[in-house]
Design a protein around this nucleic acid. Structure first.
Lengths: 208, 208
DNA sequence: TCTATTTCAGAACATTCGTTCCGTAAATTG
DNA sequence: CAATTTACGGAACGAATGTTCTGAAATAGA
């Protein structure tokens, strides 16, 4: 099943690793703060090829966001399971959030909730992308809550609880951005789990 | 007690209103996205005067953040009271958060949690500023919780609950940034109040 | 080997950026 | 009125920006 060799000159870089480098730079410097020149150098992608592949800086940024979602956010959502009790899965979720937020000590925080959120101010396309990413995360959390028997007609419906859970995750990302260590954030994450479970109509924790 | 008139030519602008314009532009476009030229024009401040007053773009940005904190964030914190039950004050607090987040429909969100958080990636001074602003808010919330009799030695100490409450506020700011209307955010804010109160060791709501 | 196709390396482009500087305008002090 | 002090308006600077272009390099098919 090996891909047939492309026709022209082969690329001297791996697209996935190149996008990883773009993610790193955009996350550290922001959209406006990351010059195309540096992006090309650290991605090891020639300018001409970059424009052929992504159309321009905006396209590259969106591609980097997609790469980030696929490789960094997806595992965080996967921690939701269901693979244990709701309490266990929520705790694992916030552990993964903290791990992601503090993964790069030089530039903590989240590409979506820092760089993309900032760039969304003036660029409507970026704002739509931000809304879509947020909606996806909230939908995934709501599904997990409903799998735990969270009644859609509860005083706090699963969608509202999911939006709250997602807001907390974003808030933690920002706290990490300010330099707060993961260890200092853990009590907040634990409080978050307890507070969310308290909204559960089934009352007692421990539901699959 | 009227101020003695200054010695030289009087300024043709009001510094407070000028900073308000800077806040507007920085919030909409971000730090890197707001050119000094446009800042001068919309602030109605000459370039030379701007550099005399603030030293440069970084100084102006920090001054804008301070102005924003004094005029926009302070009222939000003031809503915490204590002026009613803890539930009432927390509800008023999140109402004020939503009002601030959606104040400018063209560029929703928070100057601190969007522009400053993004710029904090590469600028250590900005990161320290971000940390200080966050710490101030959390301290203020923790004080309110302790005024409600929240035991420092509780399972969830007031500092952790305050950090959680602040994280939720930041998450709501980001949700607004993505274009979500205040009306759609209100259920999340209500859920936040309920979830936080559930952590209160005194158990029953309604404490002053 | 010759052609077609794709990628590469770097120069070149017009803008835009943050900052500095200079001469002029408008006020207070003596 | 002179002298001083502060603010204004705009030109000017070098550096950096996103993008485009040109020709050479490297591969596959004929």
């Amino acid at each position: 099943m090996a891909e047939a060799r492309a026709r022209g000159r082969p690329r001297g870089f791996d697209e996935g690793r190149a996008l990883d480098a773009a993610v790193r730079l955009f996350r550290a410097e922001g959209y406006d703060g990351a010059p195309v020149d540096r992006l090309c150098r650290e991605m090891r992608v020639p300018r001409a090829t970059l424009y052929d592949l992504f159309g321009g800086k905006e396209g590259l940024f969106l591609a980097a966001v997609a790469r980030y979602a696929d490789t960094r956010i997806a595992p965080v959502l996967a921690a939701l399971g269901p693979s244990g009790t709701l309490r266990d899965d929520l705790a694992a979720f916030y552990d993964a959030v903290l791990a992601l937020a503090t993964a790069d000590p030089e530039a903590p925080g989240c590409l979506v909730s820092c760089a993309l959120a900032d760039a969304a101010g003036s660029n409507t396309g970026f704002r739509a992308e931000l809304a879509a990413r947020y909606a996806a995360m909230e939908g995934r959390i709501a599904a997990r809550l409903m799998a735990a028997g969270w009644d859609v007609q509860a005083a706090t419906p699963p969608q509202a609880a999911a939006a709250l859970a997602a807001s907390i995750a974003r808030g933690l990302m920002l706290a990490a951005r300010s330099g707060t260590e993961a260890a200092q954030l853990r009590p907040t994450a634990e409080a978050a789990v307890g507070a969310l479970l308290a909204l559960h109509p089934e009352g007692a924790p421990g539901h699959g």
